[in-house]
Design a protein around this nucleic acid. Structure first.
Length: 263
DNA sequence: CTGCGTAGC
DNA sequence: GCTACGCAG
């Protein structure tokens, strides 16, 4: 009788131990998270996820789409205080330990002809070594045409920094349009989006702009790619500001109004 | 800034 | 397999 009880307790302890392990063990990752919990983007800006695989990193968050082997959206807050130009050494791209299904290996991109294009730009996370390294998870990259990434896409990212400097804190959401029939690269078949989107929100003013850009270089000025947030929601199936009230959404998402943004 | 390829340990 | 360096848009 007594033995039976003891064995039951031991068994229960094993279960608890396993549960703790399963939930709190994390594999090797970039070291030294910044101690501060700092400014995790408020949940009120969380987009919906078509996959349910939402991952929160210290300085950005994402929703991973396993069949496409990349994020469907990456969201981060860009503050004035983030705009530093500290020189940092590029680390290697590594698997995102927080993506349950494992994010794609960087070798899928090697020799593919496509860049490992950051979604949350490394240039926006230079304020700390950890923040910078954290952008080098393979969950934060998509295959991008070389001239696109270094060209018009890069110009948009620099414009976002300019807007942050002049208008204050921003919320930025970025991703590729994940649809069927896309070209795939590498052993894991990473899909190559034909189009990328970026949504930028001024936190203070509740003003937003959205861009849709073909995955190729263009000489068009940036405002040529302006679209409504609604149109991106239709293409992606993602509801971007679902936590906001409907009036708020209606006002911001339906129209293309870049009048309060200097290009 | 955005990156890649190659050489060498 | 990882790092350092040079090079390109």
């Amino acid at each position: 009788m007594k033995n039976k009880t003891i064995y039951s307790i031991l068994f229960a302890l094993c279960l608890i131990g396993f549960w703790v392990f399963k939930n709190f063990y994390t594999p090797a990752t970039y070291s030294n998270p910044d101690s501060s919990n700092e400014e995790m983007v408020e949940e009120v800006f969380l987009p919906s996820s078509t996959t349910g695989d939402i991952v929160r990193h210290e300085h950005y968050m994402l929703s991973y789409n396993e069949p496409f082997e990349q994020a469907e959206w990456v969201l981060y807050e860009l503050k004035k205080s983030h705009l530093t130009y500290d020189d940092r050494k590029r680390p290697y791209f590594i698997e995102d330990p927080k993506v349950k299904t494992k994010s794609a290996d960087w070798r899928n991109y090697r020799g593919s002809g496509y860049d490992r294009g950051h979604l949350c730009p490394a240039g926006d996370r230079r304020f700390s070594e950890y923040a910078y390294n954290e952008t080098f998870y393979t969950s934060n990259i998509s295959p991008q045409d070389r001239d696109f990434n270094a060209g018009v896409w890069n110009r948009l990212e620099q414009k976002v920094r300019y807007w942050c400097k002049t208008y204050g804190d921003l919320v930025v959401i970025t991703g590729g349009i994940l649809e069927s029939g896309l070209e795939e690269i590498g052993e894991e078949d990473v899909d190559v989006p034909k189009t990328f989107y970026k949504i930028v929100l001024q936190k203070n003013n509740n003003k937003a702009v959205a861009f849709l850009m073909p995955n190729k270089e263009s000489k068009e000025p940036l405002h040529h790619f302006l679209v409504s947030i609604d149109s991106i929601e239709k293409l992606t199936g993602i509801n971007f500001f679902e936590k906001q009230n409907e009036v708020w959404q209606d006002e911001l998402e339906s129209e293309v109004d870049a009048s309060s943004w200097k290009f």
